[in-house]
Structures are given as C-alpha cells and as structure tokens.
C-alpha cells in the first residue's frame, strides 16, 4: 500500500494502509500523542482500498478492508477517509479481539473506579463519556469497554471520540482547544461527524485499568428518571452489547456473570448533558 501508519490504542496495535495519503495524514496528526512505531507487530491490518479499478482517481471511493471484513460494506467517499479508517479499526476490534470481553459501552474513571455506560446508538453514552472526560473524570473510551477475563477490571480503549450531529456543538462549547478537533465530515451515512482527541491524561494512562463500580443504561431525550435493572436483564443486554461474548466461550461467560453480579446497574433517562452529569454525580456519591 502506498501510505501506512502503525498505531497503538489501549492494548491493541493497528497497521493502517491506504492508497491515498489524506486519511493517513489526518490519522497521524490526530493520533500524534499515541504510539506510532512503524516497526511494531500489529494485531490487525486495516486497508483503505479503491472500491473499483479506477476509483483511486475517478470519484475516489474507499472500500474498508483488512484482516476482518464485512462482505457487503458500502464504499465511502474519499473525503470521509478518516471515518473509514476509524470504522476499519472498530471492525477489527469487534470481530477479532479475544483478550478481553468486549462490550459496546463508554467508560470513565474516578479514584480507580470505573463508570460504564451502554446503550443503543443515540442513547448519548459516547457524548456523556466525552463530557465527563472534560469535567474531572478520566475518559477511558466512547465505544468499547474491555473487561479483564481474570480480574474483572475495565481496560481503556481511548480512540478518538466520534461526535455526531448536535454533540459536535455541545463539545465545541466544552473544549477550548480547537486543535483537538478533526475535520468536520458532513453528509456521512450517520450525518455530520467530527472526531475529538481525548484529553492528554486519557492517552497517557491508556493502559491503566479500573475496577467497575457502576453500570448505566442512559437514554437521551426522555424526562428525568432512574430505575434499577434486574440482573437477568443486564446479562441479556450485555450479551447483545458484546461482540465477542460467544467467541470467548466459558471465559466470557464467567467474566460477564461476575460483572453482572458485582456491579450495580441502573437505567437513567435525561434531557440534557448537564442534567445527566448532575444525576451521575449524585448516583456516584451514593455508591458504597
């Protein structure tokens, strides 16, 4: 491949190859504080390939390929190449990672204890983690929480935060340093997207695990409410939110059972980021 970058994020190392320079240049700049050792052995390879014989030049169009691929993934416009690279890395983790139980969740840490938030896209879990990361919590990740298979700890995976639509302005108001934002990607399949570089301490401490203390199922846009969630329901929802639960077999079963029986779980409804942050502070201080 003509352009390449090797990138360490949390416990994983990615090798990204591209036929075009632009996505690699953007990645390299946004991930400047992360390990970029070209000689490192990568866990996964991601390839940004032309979607057809002429598509390197003519209406350039990117196909996301690599070690693990989705057979029918739609190609993306080259101007969304950065997003394609991020999606490619997520896909490798989702389909390939076996060293932790991988849960589709965001997480933040305080005093060595982790708050894990999971839910459908649109629940606000990603934006909430980014917001708390600017307000005294350590940001651990907005997409995947990695559960340790032997001690149950939560490991960070602090890739770039992927802000969508209204969350972009909300975080622009929160983060003073405009250099932490990537280019605005308009009209992607998920609307407008802008990437945000996590705070410096999140990157510096990206190999530092925390003990899970609270699991939340946030829901954005619904009047304030807090409800307990039963263990059976939590177990079911987390098996669905995990991309490698089945692949890990008995180890995954034991890790998830442990998490569900040890970590209290609540569903919270909220109408604004400030409201959610206040609710979370309250719930957090009420923990034993």
């Amino acid at each position: 491949m003509r352009h390449a970058l090797t990138l360490g994020i949390g416990p994983a190392t990615f090798r990204i190859g591209s036929e075009w320079g632009q996505p690699i240049d953007q990645l390299s700049a946004l991930y400047a504080a992360y390990p970029q050792d070209a000689a490192a052995v990568a866990d996964y390879t991601v390839r940004l390939e032309p979607a057809g014989p002429l598509r390197r030049w003519w209406r350039p169009s990117v196909r996301i390929a690599g070690d693990h691929m989705l057979p029918d993934a739609a190609p993306m416009a080259l101007r969304h190449g950065l997003l394609a690279a991020e999606m490619g890395m997520n896909l490798q983790m989702a389909l390939g990672w076996r060293r932790h139980l991988l849960i589709h969740a965001s997480s933040v840490e305080k005093d060595g204890r982790a708050l894990v938030m999971t839910g459908e896209s649109g629940s606000g879990k990603s934006t909430l983690a980014a917001l708390l990361g600017e307000r005294g919590w350590r940001f651990m990740g907005d997409e995947f929480a990695l559960l340790d298979l032997s001690d149950g700890g939560v490991h960070p995976f602090p890739r770039l935060v992927s802000l969508k639509n209204a969350a972009i302005e909300a975080m622009r108001a929160e983060v003073g340093d405009s250099a932490r934002f990537g280019p605005l990607l308009e009209d992607t399949p998920k609307g407008a997207i802008r990437h945000l570089v996590p705070p410096a301490d999140a990157i510096a401490r990206m190999r530092e695990a925390a003990v899970p203390a609270l699991l939340l199922f946030p829901r954005y846009g619904v009047a304030r409410d807090v409800r307990p969630v039963g263990q059976g329901e939590v177990f079911m929802r987390l098996t669905q939110a995990s991309t490698n639960y089945v692949a890990l077999g008995e180890e995954g079963f034991e890790a998830l059972h442990r998490f569900v029986t040890e970590v209290p779980a609540l569903a919270i409804d909220y109408e604004s980021g400030d409201e959610a942050a206040a609710m979370i502070d309250e719930l957090w201080s009420a923990l034993p």
Partner: peptide, 20 residues
Amino acid sequence: LVWRELDGLVLVYHRPSGQT
C-alpha cells in the same frame, strides 16, 4: 454444564455447544 445464579434465574453454560 456450568451453573451460575442470577437473582431468581439460573444461567447454564453448555460446554459442548458453547451456548448460554
């Protein structure tokens, strides 16, 4: 089989099939 409790429910991990 591996048996685990979850308030009021029983989880069974079935080793031969890898199913829960």
